[in-house]
Design a protein around this nucleic acid. Structure first.
Length: 369
DNA sequence: TAGAATGATTTACA
DNA sequence: TGTAAATCATTCTA
């Protein structure tokens, strides 16, 4: 709102409440509105034929002052300075009081409407973006790529070299996104601070020549911050999109299965056929198998699930495989027994402890008796 | 390149 | 929650 418009809007209010203001100004400026004087080269008009005690006369007086202010405001700077009027007005002892009243009226009129819009509730979309960035480890303290997807990666990786590579690749890309996000955010914050400082200085400077209250400056700062946070929201949005794309690519990659190594399949098959009567490994057994095969426990569970159902569906087909592993297990058991016997003969005369797998006795369908 | 093999996912159930 | 069963998606092989 320009000063002249403001003054025009305020003139009526000022005039009507002049009696009160006169008392206030008297107490602030130490001068009665009726008191006319020459200040800084600006000659104030004489009282229009009254002694100053008359209310109508004082209204007329302040009306004249405001008229002068408006005239000066409409003038160019050079013109006003040439006439030394602006300076005169600036130094006038009534200026602070007048500005104070004008600021107050500004607050009570248009600006108060804006004020009601200021305390917006937090934007739910912004909150969602913030939460997601936090969860993904992009915003907030660095968690070593500690996101849900990253955790899934760790679980999927288990120990398999290829998955570990994919996982570290995911983490590296996430770190890259994080760095870009923080650099951009810093830039925005810096720009926001610089702009805010500039505008505040400008307003403070202007407050010498037009009525600007600290509240108004504060409000302006709020507007600037809101503008910048909308830009930040765009940054957050694009960062979220980048993370989503990365995540979907990663999850797709996770679906790309790789066959287990021959050695891992052998270990799993050995266990399966040697426990054919009850091919349900305990949690501990699964963990041990997972360790031996360099896969995860859930992969072990999947393997046993698949194996059980496929074996059951086609026992005939698996018969050969069952015999093969049975023979293998028997040989292993024989070796273990022989080693134990040898060991006991060498070290102790006592009866050898029957350790290792017992040689399974298979039924015709491959089941252990 | 088609079909088999195989690891993963989904759904239903106890 | 673990498992069976069905199914999907990918890899292997003849």
């Amino acid at each position: 709102m320009s000063f002249s418009i403001c003054v025009a809007q305020c003139t009526d209010s000022l005039a009507s409440s002049m009696d009160d203001q006169a008392r206030i100004m008297q107490s602030i400026g130490g001068v009665s509105l009726s008191g006319h004087s020459v200040q800084g080269g600006m000659a104030l008009p004489p009282p229009h034929g009254h002694d100053g005690s008359d209310g109508d006369g004082r209204k007329q007086d302040i009306g004249d002052i405001l008229h002068q202010i408006m005239t000066i405001t409409d003038q160019s700077l050079d013109e006003a300075q040439a006439k030394n009027r602006k300076h005169g007005l600036n130094c006038h002892r009534m200026k602070p009081a007048l500005f104070s009243v004008l600021c107050e009226i500004k607050e009570k009129t248009g600006l108060s409407i804006r004020g009601s819009q200021e305390e917006d509730p937090p934007d739910p979309q912004l909150m969602r973006l913030d939460n997601m960035l936090l969860a993904e480890g992009v915003a907030g303290p660095e968690k070593g790529g500690g996101s849900a997807a990253s955790a899934a990666a760790a679980a999927a990786a288990g120990g398999a070299a290829d998955s570990s590579i994919e996982h570290s690749d995911y983490r590296a890309k996430l770190t890259q996104i994080r760095q870009i996000y923080h650099t951009e955010l810093e830039k925005y914050e810096q720009a926001c601070n610089e702009f805010t400082t500039h505008v505040m200085n400008l307003l403070r400077e202007q407050s010498r020549t037009r009525p600007i209250s600290p509240k108004e400056i504060e409000r302006m700062v709020g507007i600037i911050h809101r503008k910048f946070s909308s830009i930040q929201m765009q940054l957050k949005q694009s960062t979220c999109e980048a993370v989503m794309i990365l995540r979907s690519r990663f999850l797709d990659a996770r679906r790309k299965r790789r066959n287990f190594s021959k050695q891992a399949t052998e270990i799993l098959n050995e266990y399966f056929y040697s426990h054919l009567s009850n091919p349900y490994p305990s949690e501990e057994a699964k963990e041990e198998l997972a360790k031996k095969c360099s896969i995860t426990v859930s992969q072990v569970s999947n393997w046993f699930g698949n194996k059980r159902i496929r074996y059951k569906k086609n026992i005939g087909k698996f018969q050969e495989e069952a015999n093969l592993y049975a023979a293998k297990t028997a040989v292993n058991a024989a070796h273990a027994v022989a080693a134990a016997v040898q060991n006991s003969q060498a070290n102790s005369p006592t009866t050898p402890n029957s350790g290792g797998y017992p040689a399974p006795c298979y039924q015709s369908d491959g089941r252990i008796q």
